[in-house]
């Protein structure tokens, strides 16, 4: 449990650093691009979303430091083997579906906008590369 507590401390610190970076990025974007620009509005929306995700994680971890029962509950929920199986199945399944949708998007966008098709191809290639790297890593590990 002590190892898990240290992991949580690390994650919380990482989350706070992440929040600070996002706020800094938000300020820089806001002051340099300007309030009315579409890209600034898009970036600020994206930053707000990331902040919300970070805040949810922080809100999940911080109470566990104060209460041993909550810490154990969090440990069980994160290490439960059924939950892990669900996460693994979800990740592999959603990757296949996303790749298929992206593939279909590439085919359709080549007819409409070649630039969009190019971007989608790069995204799909990036996803495939990340999957290959992870696959290689886990094949070496196990």
């Amino acid at each position: 449990m002590e190892k898990f507590r240290k992991q949580l401390i690390f994650r919380t610190i990482f989350t706070f650093v992440f929040i600070v970076c996002i706020v800094a990025a938000y300020i820089v974007i806001y002051s340099s691009i300007g309030e009315k620009s579409v890209s600034a509005a898009y970036s600020s929306g994206f930053c707000t979303g990331l902040l919300a995700v970070a805040a949810v994680y922080a809100a999940r971890y911080i109470p566990a430091f104060k209460d041993e029962a909550k810490l154990k509950k969090l440990y069980v929920s994160e290490n439960d083997e059924r939950e892990r199986l669900i996460r693994e199945k979800t990740a592999s399944g959603s990757f296949s579906v996303c790749a298929f949708i992206l593939g279909a998007g590439i085919v359709i966008s080549t007819l409409v906008s070649p630039a969009t098709a190019g971007v989608l191809t790069v995204v799909l290639a990036g996803m495939a590369l990340v999957k290959m790297i992870f696959n290689f890593y886990y094949r070496r590990k196990y």
Binding site: V76, N79, D80, E81, R82
Partner: peptide, 8 residues
Amino acid sequence: AVGVTRQT
């Protein structure tokens, strides 16, 4: 007792 969730 066995370190899993009730759902498991």
